[in-house]
Write a protein that binds this DNA or RNA. Structure first.
Lengths: 174, 174
DNA sequence: ATATCCATGTAACGTGTTACATGATTGT
DNA sequence: ACAATCATGTAACACGTTACATGGATAT
């Protein structure tokens, strides 16, 4: 149940339309909880029906923009959810399954794929580092909110570094 | 499309029944691609219908055991899939969404949850390390298959260590 | 025999993905 | 006016989760 709450979070940061939300997901919250515009419209519909968000102005024809605001009930729900205990979910990574498959098949070499993944993870790491330098330059003072946003980014950086190290180690050993 | 291939991999390691597969997923491949017994039975049905696996003996009454073997077509499909290029999927972690929510709400302290997650990740890391010591003791010679299985385990260890470091850092800074 | 557990399933629903459709807006 | 693009959706399906049901095996 994270997507509706990710949407509430993003709308609380700044009310906007569905398409604008989808764009924001492509380069911010979506790094840690990706969503397509179809998912977003579906959830916006449910959130509106539940009274957690509301569209500004009246419902107009299909295709015209609809601006959404978070209602008090939506904010309360987001508080409730973010405080509720929830365990981490296991990783679920296809490349690791493929390595196990290669181990049992014995006829498959995944070196190329590992190199390709290393490349992709390096690119993602670069993107995260650029965001860090732009939004949290060294020496800048951080309030609580910025500190939390930075912590999220640092988690992403740590994962990508972890992947990179693993790719290098695996290529060197195997 | 990883679950059917994870099942093929596991059945290729050792043919067995659905329940045995579910048990194996709980403590091996399932660390990296979890699945419930309902998912597994559903996929077994599809794989059987597609002719990629076959049940030993005749179909008997409901409730009786059914032993599955991988067919040649199943092995071919697993080779094809494991060699096909597939990009890594983004992380999708609820705790990071909750941190962003806490940043915008300003009234939520997630310190307790982060400590709890640190605890859980520490336990998982312990479990992985125990498996490493049991299956790949220092000094043991590794053939290609063992090397690949060990690489998968090392990925899990690296992620858990990464999480642990992040939790510690976040608790110290925030 | 009957209570208990185990293996195999069904049902319902929520979430994620892909392909496509329709009305509005913009540029020329 | 027309084409291209954008915003908003619909439809269909695959995957994941939870709750429950039924037949077989086991123990007392």
């Amino acid at each position: 149940m994270s997507l509706p709450h990710a949407i509430l979070t993003s709308l609380l940061e700044k009310p906007c339309t569905g398409a604008e939300l989808a764009r924001r997901f492509d380069k911010s919250l979506g790094y840690f909880w990706p969503a397509t515009h179809q998912q977003i419209y579906r959830e916006l519909g449910k959130l509106e029906e539940a009274g957690l968000i509301a569209a500004r102005g009246l419902a107009t024809a299909r295709g015209s923009q609809r601006h959404f605001d978070v209602q008090a009930a939506g904010r309360a729900e987001l508080e409730r959810w973010s405080l509720a205990a929830a365990d981490p979910r296991p990783v679920r990574d296809a490349l690791l399954v493929r390595l196990r498959a290669a181990a049992v098949l014995g006829t498959v070499d995944l070196g190329g794929e590992i190199r390709r993944h290393r490349q992709l993870h390096a690119q993602t790491l670069e993107r995260y580092r650029a965001i860090e330098e732009r939004d949290f330059p060294p020496g800048s003072a951080l309030d609580t909110a910025s500190g939390l946003r930075r912590a999220v980014l640092l988690a992403g950086i740590a994962f990508e570094e972890s992947w990179l190290a693993w790719c290098a180690e695996t290529l060197a050993t195997g």
